[in-house]
Nucleic acid binder design. Sequence first.
DNA 1: CTATCATTAAACTATATGGTTGAACAAAGG
DNA 2: CCTTTGTTCAACCATATAGTTTAATGATAG
Lengths: 108, 108
Amino acid sequence: MVEQRIQLDLVFAALSDSTRRDILARVAKIEMSIGEIAEHYKMTFAGIAKHVKVLERAGLVIKKRRGKEQVVIIVPSSLSIASSHIEQYAKMWSERFNQLETLLKEEK
Amino acid sequence: MVEQRIQLDLVFAALSDSTRRDILARVAKIEMSIGEIAEHYKMTFAGIAKHVKVLERAGLVIKKRRGKEQVVIIVPSSLSIASSHIEQYAKMWSERFNQLETLLKEEK
DNA sequence: CTATCATTAAACTATATGGTTGAACAAAGG
DNA sequence: CCTTTGTTCAACCATATAGTTTAATGATAG
């Protein structure tokens, strides 16, 4: 329970950086080694490796050794937790939506 | 375009703290003043006010003055941006899902 | 075994964040 | 106007983060 809240912290924090979201989008399409990922950015290899580590700690990707390379692979489950969490807000706010509209009109 | 990416950074960063997610869940149900919100936490009033400001900067809530209180109200649109963004990953990974399953089995 | 390629780890700097306290500002009520 | 209540702002501290460079480890090819 508490663990899952921490996990969610890590997932959202990982997604809060556009470089990491970009990396995630890449490996969602094609699995890539860290070196291959790094080629697409101005940042140093070590910098990219750190970003990948953040994604890994959040459980968004895993690494699998293939020869001497380390291949980065996306993990669906953790992202779906984040997604469903956001949907919970969606439910709650939809109940309040009309109320909100009125208030925003008042503003003008 | 670039602005939206920055906005998304702010939205995910705002959601990466469990206190802020908790506040968001509260105001999604019932609009509350900052003081009312603060009553539910051990943190100081100013601490909560800062968290609310983070949510506000991300566009997740707005404040509306009601008498001498400042009422915090959730804003649907920004959250839906985040949600749809996550769904984009969902689409991409679903294409790769079978491929992934195989790899995870190999692991064992 | 050695040389090489891919990755990880460590040490460091700069900046951002979460939290505090205390002072200043704003609106309402006497 | 003065006081009270609710909020904001500024200064400060501790810790976390993003990035760098350099050294160390792992795996493969010869």
